[in-house]
Amino acid sequence: MQATSERLENKHKIGIVVFPGSNCDRDVYSVLNNDLKVGADLIWHTNDKITKYDAVVIPGGFSYGDRLRAGIIAAHSPIMDKIKQMAKDGIPILGICNGFQILVESCLLPGALLMNDSLNFVCRWTDLRVDNNKTPFTNHFCDREIFSIPVAHGQGRYVADKKTLKELQKNNQIVLRYSGDNPNGSTDCIAGICNPEGNVMGLMPHPERASESILCPKPGSNKAIKIFKSLVSYLTDKNSYDKEDKFSGTDSRSSSRILYHSINKTKY
């Protein structure tokens, strides 16, 4: 495991986007700053300085009150244009719950997130299995590792057409699956996916809520913190980061080389 507690301030910073209606921004901020001692800032959606950050987290909540459709209005917000460019440049972008919905509506991730099959909002703990531990967000996990995490959403059922699904499976883009209990009826038990390059990931469950032992149903089961630790490792240890065959089944070397190259060029 790579070391993670090195303070990133003034070297690498994580920007947490705050839309009107975001709720989990302060929770993510707390885990990153207080638990992991990483430099993370809350960035109001009209603030241009998001482009100066080395990683972006789009937190959970009800951006714009879920008006029209969850995430649709935020997806058309000017800040998302900047984030789309950052994604192209290989900056790690993590979307949690409403953040995942925003990434899907922004077309940074494929598929759609529909109403839960129970037709009700569901808030409960479940287990996830890591099916791709080579992304910037999962490199601290063992392959097929299972960990506990809570969900809290009304529109979390992931769907995609057959072709997209095949692509996702072929490219190892399905990062996290519900193991055992599927709380919303997601196709193929999909809980989190990434883009073909691997630097953009969205997941419906809330890792920030399972990062401290005291908040977990079983003491010591706060393994979800590894999602954040993985990101921190990715940012600090890029030099020794294994670039080979990381994200996609095809053309992996060339895409990851481009990724690495652009990260090195990022300025503050």
Partner: peptide
């Protein structure tokens, strides 16, 4: 009922619904 309520947001809910006789927040 309580699984329709987000009872975890805010990172304070130490004793969740159904686990004890009252709700405990940090």
């Amino acid at each position: 009922i309580y699984s329709q309520y987000d009872h975890e947001v805010g990172l304070r809910t130490v004793l969740k619904p159904g686990c004890g006789d009252a709700s405990v927040l940090r």
